[in-house]
Simulated scan of single mutants.
Amino acid sequence: MSRFEVAFSGQTVPGIPLDTVKSNLARLFQADEQRIALLFSGRRVVIKNNLDAAGAEKYRTVMERAGALVEVVDLDAAIEEIELAPPPADPQAPQPLKVAPRDEYMAAFSDVEAPDFGLAPVGADLQDAKAEAQGPQLDLSEFSVAPVGSDMGQAKAAPAAPVPDTSHLKLME
C-alpha cells in the first residue's frame, strides 16, 4: 500500500483571483490570515502526509475546488540513484607523487591519494592573519571618579544598643 503526501507551493487555478483562493482556504482550514499568508510564502508546505491514494485524491480535489493547485507525491516511489562521473582530469593540475613503500606496513598505504603539500620557508607564519578585535563603544560621559578616601555611600553600621541598667540586681549567698 502506497503512502502519499499533499503539498502546496502557492500555485492557484488559472482564472480564480488570489483573494478568492485565500478566503476559500481560510474557510476550508478554519485558519486566520497569518496562517494563510504562510501558505502563500512561496515555499513548499506539506498539507497532509501518510495518506492512502483515495485520501490524497480527496485532498487534491477539495483544494482544487478552493482554487489551489497541490502536488500529490508518492512517498513509497522508488528513488532513482544516479552515479556521478568522475570530474575530467585537469592537465595543469599537479600529479600525485608516487613513493615506493619502505616496508610491508607502509605498503598498505601506497594506494592512498593525499594532496601534495609543500613546505613553508623557515620562519614563515602558517596561521591566517586575524582582524584586530574591536571593543564595544560605550558612552561613559555621565560617570565620574570620586577622590581617594571619600565616602562612596556605603551603608552605615547601626548604632550599638544602649547598655542595659543592671544596678537593681544583687548577688546573694
Rank of each mutant, 00 (worst) to 15 (best):
M1V: 11
S2K: 13
V6L: 01
A7G: 03
S9G: 14
G10T: 00
T12R: 09
T12G: 04
P14T: 09
P14H: 09
P14E: 15
G15F: 00
G15M: 04
I16Y: 01
I16K: 14
P17N: 07
T20R: 11
T20V: 15
V21L: 09
V21H: 07
S23A: 15
S23Q: 14
L25F: 05
L28E: 06
F29M: 11
Q30T: 11
D32Q: 06
Q34F: 03
Q34A: 15
Q34N: 11
R35P: 01
I36A: 03
L38F: 08
L38W: 01
L39Q: 08
S41Y: 02
G42F: 00
K48W: 03
K48Y: 06
K48Q: 15
N49F: 08
L51K: 09
L51N: 09
L51E: 03
A54I: 12
G55F: 01
G55C: 00
E57T: 12
E57H: 10
Y59C: 04
R60L: 08
T61K: 12
V62E: 15
M63A: 06
A66S: 12
V70I: 10
V70D: 03
E71I: 12
E71W: 05
V72L: 00
V73Y: 08
D74S: 06
L75F: 04
D76E: 07
D76H: 02
I79S: 12
E80N: 06
E80I: 11
E81T: 10
E83D: 13
A85F: 02
A85E: 12
A85K: 10
P86V: 02
P86K: 09
P88W: 00
A89I: 15
P91L: 02
A93G: 00
P94K: 08
P96R: 02
L97P: 10
L97Y: 03
V99I: 15
V99H: 06
V99G: 02
A100D: 13
D103A: 05
Y105Q: 11
M106K: 04
A107T: 08
F109Q: 09
F109E: 10
S110K: 13
S110Q: 14
D111R: 07
A114E: 09
P115L: 09
P115N: 09
F117H: 08
F117M: 05
G118T: 06
G118N: 03
L119K: 14
A120R: 09
P121H: 01
V122P: 11
V122A: 15
V122I: 12
G123H: 05
A124D: 07
A124L: 03
D125T: 09
L126P: 07
L126C: 03
Q127F: 06
Q127A: 11
Q127C: 04
A129H: 03
A129Q: 12
K130R: 14
A131P: 13
E132W: 04
E132Y: 05
E132D: 14
G135H: 01
G135I: 00
Q137G: 02
L138K: 01
D139M: 02
F143C: 08
F143R: 07
V145E: 10
A146H: 08
S150W: 08
D151P: 02
G153A: 03
G153E: 02
K156R: 14
A158V: 12
A158D: 13
A158N: 13
A160P: 03
P162Q: 02
P162H: 00
V163E: 15
D165F: 07
T166G: 10
H168Y: 06
H168V: 01
H168N: 12
K170R: 12
L171K: 07
L171W: 11
E173T: 12
